[in-house]
Design a protein around this nucleic acid. Structure first.
Lengths: 225, 225
DNA sequence: CCATAAATGTCGATT
DNA sequence: AATCGACGTTTATGG
């Protein structure tokens, strides 16, 4: 890992073209050759970058300024960095990273809801998780007290896309005489207004689920701090 | 901007929980308090991070190890970094960045296609760009040689979402007696097979557009290098 | 300020 | 390798 702080100008040409006027920035060159140009604000996204696999070639422009040309290996994407004034330049041996362990995403929410289907509606019972259809798996297939099938789509954030997805499943499942009629439930920690409206128009019920309550907010073993 | 290279352990708790075992990494602390933890590989996304607005508090753990606690201002997201061994620590004044200029995204593609509607189909003429409907603007509204309305949805990458979007517009527009019948064209630089199949099923025509050809690939003033 | 759509999205899983 | 869906998405844009 090489860290450079420099007054620089950057140009990118690839899927789009982009230009950064001269200013002082941090340039990160990773062991795999990838390059990140960061400013002192914004969030984790660099102003400009080149993803691996790529190669860095150091050269000198016509006016004598040091210039890096970073070229992608598979496409003709190119990043050109003019280093007008280098304020810091250091290299560091980092080694291979053991990587990140995650917990708490949609899969976990699905597991919890599968075990607590009544959260979605009184009397609902689970038939199976990941019920397969021709166009993909439905998160939960349930039956209500009347024995009718209920397809459940689970999202962390209930967006319009999720409603469309569930609509496609329902359309398909309702062609199956063995299942018909199938109604839909759209379950999420948060449901966007537009998604709610579309769901209503499609006769799909919306349920907002409380992840922390399901997980058991009082269980101290699940809290890090 | 502060740059720290250190053997560290990181824990995040917020919308999910995540853990990084001890290893040497680069930690970037930006002027706005945001923190990025980078390894020596991967792409531009940090292993862990905290977005602004947030505050960094430096403390010492029970075992004497220096520990940073970064807390988000608006949520209770927390990032905890145990600095087991600091190999490098430097601070740099960067100043405000003038920002990025971009060119070549969807809007530009839409401008180009608006001026060259025949690329989408022989005899097509433009009625207007950004034709407003109750659920949002249709990229292009055209008429064909027979005078029938044609709604065009433009994407850089033609995905299933875009087909769904156009479908919603068409459904709505076909309820309008003044426009009916309206057919659809899905235009993109690249169209995914699944999107193509769905479009076919909906009676929507797919057109792959060559951005470079439209822009005029031979115009040297548009080439950076 | 809230809501939605785009992104040089990135990332992981699965075909 | 290609495709698909999720993401602590982030970021820009319009109401």
């Amino acid at each position: 890992m090489r860290l450079v702080v420099a007054r620089c100008q950057v140009d990118y040409a690839g899927r789009l073209t982009a230009h950064l006027p001269p200013a002082t920035r941090v340039i990160m060159v990773k062991a795999d050759g990838s390059v990140l140009v960061h400013s002192d604000g914004g969030s984790y996204k660099p102003l400009n970058w080149m993803s691996p696999p790529c190669t860095l070639r150091e050269g000198v422009a016509d006016d004598g300024v040091v210039e890096w040309t970073v070229s992608a290996a598979k496409s003709d994407d190119t990043l050109r960095i003019r280093l007008e004034e280098v304020l810091h330049d250091s290299a560091h041996e980092l080694g291979v990273d053991p990587g990140l362990r995650k917990d708490g995403v949609e899969k976990h929410l699905q597991e919890l809801l599968a075990e607590h289907t009544t959260t979605l509606g009184a009397g609902l019972t689970l038939v199976r998780r990941e019920h397969m259809t021709a166009i993909g798996p439905v998160d939960l297939l349930c039956r209500d007290t009347g024995g009718a099938a209920v397809a459940v789509e689970i999202k962390r954030r209930g967006d319009i896309d999720g409603v469309e997805q569930l609509t496609r499943y329902l359309e398909l499942m309702n062609r199956d005489p063995a299942l018909r009629p199938v109604r839909g439930i759209f379950a999420a920690q948060e449901i966007k207004p537009q998604a709610r409206v579309l769901a209503g128009d499609r006769g799909i019920e919306c349920v907002v689920v409380d992840y922390d309550a399901l997980r058991g907010i009082d269980d101290p073993s699940l809290r890090l701090f």
